[in-house]
Write a protein that binds this DNA or RNA. Sequence first.
DNA 1: ATCATAGTTGACGTTTACGTAAACGGAAAC
DNA 2: GTTTCCGTTTACGTAAACGTCAACTATGAT
Lengths: 136, 136
Amino acid sequence: MPGKKVHTIADLVREFGVTARTIRFYEAEGMLTPERQGQQRLYHPRDRVRLTLILRGKRLGFTLAEIREIIDLYHADPGELGQLQYFLDKIQERRADLEQKRRDIELTLKELEEVDQTCRQRLSELAHAGSQEAAE
Amino acid sequence: MPGKKVHTIADLVREFGVTARTIRFYEAEGMLTPERQGQQRLYHPRDRVRLTLILRGKRLGFTLAEIREIIDLYHADPGELGQLQYFLDKIQERRADLEQKRRDIELTLKELEEVDQTCRQRLSELAHAGSQEAAE
DNA sequence: ATCATAGTTGACGTTTACGTAAACGGAAAC
DNA sequence: GTTTCCGTTTACGTAAACGTCAACTATGAT
């Protein structure tokens, strides 16, 4: 299906697991720009890419405003030199943010792993105690 | 300062860069449990740890409800066997979630790195063109 | 005694990101 | 031809996570 040229809103609903309301909301926010055929919307690959980026950003806890900024970075017209430096700064901000998130994730994963170990150990202890009891 | 035994709310405001309103809100949500000395709140190391976890969770885009769940996993009483299996499942959920976030981060970082490269190249081109112009 | 400083307690306001319901349009199925 | 299905528009509703007063209280400094 993703190979198809254009998609209806229901296609996107199925593919991305979001509601039509959400998709239209993103359009109202200027983050999607489907073609119009009469009254209906037709979504092109470009829109699917953008929706992918939006949802990825959401999973990372970015606000729509931040996601918009990030997407804008992708399609930024090089423009003039001052703009370029501005973009590079923005990119650095985002990268720093993402690297912080990465550190947070590593920490949390490490801690959860410890808890997991403790649980499993306790579990095997209980199992052992259970078989002991059964043997008595 | 973090070595001190107890802290006032203003201490936490300074240390964590959040407002007192926020700290009290987290307490109202049952995520902090400061001691009371008369009317004032006194925050113990335990509260600082929890606040750290809360803010880390926020950076990762977890809701307070999710953060509460995660923190609960840390302090989960082993309890009985059924509970243990439940905890292990919960832990797996969280880990899967975090690993998804990690993949999202890697992707975004990679893409931003490309944009960064493109920008820097364009920048050097412009600089070169500029010196060319100056030479003409 | 009073003034400034720090903290507290409601209570209502605000933003973000949608949910939900009503009312309508077009086309396709029966 | 009229249900049925899919989509649209408009508009009000809502939950989460605080912000922002306003009106105290306690405490230490002057």
